[in-house]
């Protein structure tokens, strides 16, 4: 349910991403009711369509759904990794909260990304530069947001690595020599280096073994509590969603089929697909 409450942090309206040549019928002829996101007329693929939500400061929003349902597309659009087809996004802490950030110039987008957002990808290779040391990666983010003092950067990197339990003496090592869990923690350090109000987490624990998963999740939860960062957590793992989020959106075929409080989604799902998803929980 959308209210015109005024203290939102991120506001998303009608966000749509379509791959390939499409026509005005494309969105209407795809979606969960057709059990497909491929347009039957022209074969264009609707990755996500008509996405609407508000995120409030300090709130954690989960996005669940099967592979290919459009979860990652949403955060990648908002982090400017992908170009939107349609839609608007507004960010309260940005200089003008009535400007659609998705239409801003690349220079402005870069500013927003470096100062107001953080992103943690499933694959550390997407979020880290493997030619830089772990400290260098954190430094890169800090320099981008205008911190030029080398001593300060080094201190901040040291502080972040010890907070995320990466041995500080490995500050100058390349991430390629780190284990998967450590790489992920360096990536988290980098994402939060300049204290952004908003953090995107895209399947951050997928592919890690359970004990490392637990550590990464504990870290994210503690950080959220301590810093009060608003987060969008993309995961297909309902346990991750239950542990981290206040609210959840369930996606299928590029649409949000249900959204609600996380405990409500897990205990009283309304949509057919949401019921199937919850009943599949082991």
């Amino acid at each position: 349910m959308i209210r015109n409450d005024d203290n939102w942090l991120l506001r998303v309206r009608n966000l749509t991403k379509i791959y390939g040549a499409y026509n005005e019928q494309t969105v209407a002829r795809t979606g969960p009711e057709f059990n497909s996101n491929i347009c039957p007329d022209n074969g264009s693929i609707v990755a996500c369509a008509d996405i609407n939500f508000d995120l409030y400061p300090g709130e954690v929003l989960g996005i669940v759904g099967e592979s290919g349902s459009g979860k990652s597309t949403i955060v990648k659009l908002l982090y400017f990794d992908l170009e939107k087809t349609n839609g608007e996004a507004f960010l309260k802490p940005y200089e003008n909260d009535t400007l659609n950030i998705l239409d801003e110039s690349n220079q402005k987008k870069k500013f927003i990304r470096n100062n107001l957002m953080g992103m943690v990808y499933q694959n550390p290779r997407d979020g880290l530069n493997f030619n830089f040391s772990s400290g260098g990666n954190i430094g890169e983010k800090l320099i981008m947001s205008g911190n030029m003092h080398v001593g300060n950067i080094r201190n901040r990197a040291t502080e972040l690595l010890s907070k995320t339990e990466v041995p500080v003496q490995r500050l100058d090592d390349l991430p390629a020599f780190f284990s998967g869990g450590m790489q992920q923690r360096v990536q988290i350090s980098k994402a939060i280096a300049n204290n952004p109000p908003l953090l995107f987490l895209d399947e951050v624990t997928t592919g890690l073994d359970v004990s490392v998963q637990a550590k990464v999740l504990d870290l994210i939860r503690e950080m959220q509590q301590e810093l009060g960062i608003a987060m969008i957590v993309v995961s297909h793992d309902l346990s991750v969603i239950r542990m981290l989020t206040d609210r959840t959106m369930v996606m299928k075929n590029g649409r949000i089929v249900e959204s609600g409080l996380t405990d409500q989604i897990l205990q009283d799902p309304q949509h057919e697909y949401a019921q199937l998803l919850v009943s599949s929980l082991l």
């Binding site: 349910m1 959308i2 209210r3 409030y56 709130e59 609210r247 409080l261």
Partner: peptide, 9 residues
């Protein structure tokens, strides 16, 4: 019953 998710939180 009608309050938004945010209000409930």
């Amino acid at each position: 019953v009608q309050a938004s998710d945010h209000e409930m939180i």
